[in-house]
Amino acid sequence: MSKASKFFINCEEANLFCDKDQYEEASFWEKIRLKIHVLYCRVCQKYVIRNRKLTNTMKEAKVITINQEVKEIMKKRLQQEMKKSSNQSIQS
């Protein structure tokens, strides 16, 4: 494998490295290879920009979610209500 081929990657690899970088899972060399690829590939440049915008939007959103315990309680209540509704329609 030549030295150049160690640094040049295809678009599929670039997208994978970009996604890994979004979740802070990309290695140092993956980041370097991605930067080299993005220098000459306009399609991947746009992908990286959109990915960064998505990441920033999610970080800024400060979404608050409910915990798993509350989800389970809600699920059980919903199932109970659906069962009641189903029984009532059968009796009618």
Score class of each variant (00 low, 15 high):
K46M: 06
Q88M: 09
E30H: 05
E30I: 02
L78C: 11
R52C: 04
V63I: 03
K83S: 04
L54S: 00
C18L: 14
A26V: 01
V48T: 06
V43H: 14
Y47R: 01
V63M: 14
L78G: 12
Q91W: 12
C11G: 04
K84R: 07
R50P: 00
C11I: 15
T55K: 14
R33N: 05
K6Y: 07
R50G: 00
K53H: 06
K3M: 09
K31V: 02
I36D: 04
C11W: 09
V43Q: 11
E24G: 03
R77T: 13
A26T: 00
Q79A: 05
Q45C: 05
Q68V: 07
N56H: 08
C11D: 06
A61L: 09
V63Q: 06
I66Q: 04
R52Q: 08
Y23E: 10
R52L: 08
R77N: 13
I9N: 01
K6F: 11
K62L: 04
F8P: 02
C44L: 05
T55E: 12
V43D: 13
A4V: 10
N67H: 01
K83Q: 06
I73F: 03
V38H: 03
R50C: 01
V48F: 14
F8S: 01
K76I: 14
C44T: 13
L34W: 07
I32D: 00
H37M: 05
Q79G: 03
D21F: 12
S2E: 11
L16H: 10
S89C: 11
F28H: 12
E13L: 04
E30K: 08
C41F: 01
N10Y: 13
S27V: 03
S85E: 06
E24I: 01
N56R: 15
Q45H: 05
K76E: 10
S5G: 13
N15M: 13
H37T: 08
D19F: 13
A14N: 02
V43K: 09
D21T: 00
K31D: 04
N15V: 14
K53S: 00
